[in-house]
């Protein structure tokens, strides 16, 4: 075994050295990473800092704070023309949906009835979700062919058709996140972070969340 120790590969030795010096090297690595393309995965030394182009293309999933929203704007009036051209085949003339495609409009006040109609207007809690989904996945067969202005306009059309905003309201990076969706408080709070197996049960999240949620929603 002694022989194999002396024959240990250079790579293995390098890993051991870098581990031993990790604390000492950390400030140096942080300096290198800052504003340069030198960052890599520690220990394994693979990977590189993302390019600007990569971040533009792939950091575009929009969250509820709207931080990822691009510049641009649109109104429901502008959206109406686009909707008639690109959306009507599946979602219907007034957003009522053509089975099996979903309705976008209507359903307010039905959620606690047996005929609950789950639409963007009655169910969706955040307006950013509409923008995000249209932007990345619509229209089917011509995904990502809409400009940011188009997406703001179509989002505005859906919101106005549901009576959530006015036809003349301008939707942009700032106004969209301020839209109060009717069902904003219609969901129980987010579950706690997924615990390790032994501390987690399967259905009871719902049972546990229910009482707390009711008081929170009021």
């Amino acid at each position: 075994m002694g022989a194999s120790k002396t024959h240990c590969t250079t790579r293995y030795c390098r890993i051991r050295i870098s581990l031993a010096k990790a604390n000492f090297l950390l400030p140096v690595m942080a300096l290198l990473a800052c504003g340069t393309a030198m960052a890599q995965l520690p220990i394994y030394n693979v990977g590189r800092t993302p390019t600007e182009a990569e971040l533009r293309t792939w950091d575009n999933v929009v969250g509820p704070d709207g931080k990822e929203l691009p510049p641009g704007s649109g109104t429901a009036k502008e959206g109406a023309t686009l909707y008639a051209a690109k959306c009507v085949a599946c979602h219907g003339k007034d957003g009522e949906g053509v089975f099996p495609y979903r309705a976008l409009v209507g359903g307010r006040g039905t959620l606690n009835t047996p005929a609950a109609n789950l639409t963007v207007g009655s169910y969706t809690p955040y307006a950013t979700t509409i923008w995000d989904f249209i932007n990345r996945a619509m229209p089917q067969y011509a995904e990502r062919t809409l400009s940011p202005d188009d997406v703001y306009a179509l989002t505005a059309w859906i919101l106005a058709k549901n009576g959530i905003i006015k036809e003349t309201d301008v939707m942009d990076k700032n106004t969209l996140v301020q839209v109060q969706m009717p069902n904003r408080h219609g969901f129980y709070p987010d579950p706690p972070q997924a615990a390790p197996d032994k501390n987690r049960s399967w259905l009871p999240y719902w049972n546990q969340a229910k009482p707390a949620a009711k008081s929170a929603a009021k």
């Binding site: 606690n112 969706t124 809690p125 979700t129 995000d132 219609g186 969901f187 999240y205 969340a209």
Partner: peptide
């Protein structure tokens, strides 16, 4: 981020009109 698969499909609406998600 309340993405589409998290707020329309893949949620559970209960009889009282409240829904659960991220189950």
């Amino acid at each position: 981020y309340y993405l589409r698969p998290e707020i329309s499909a893949y949620t559970n609406l209960h009889p009282d009109g409240m829904a659960t998600w991220y189950e």
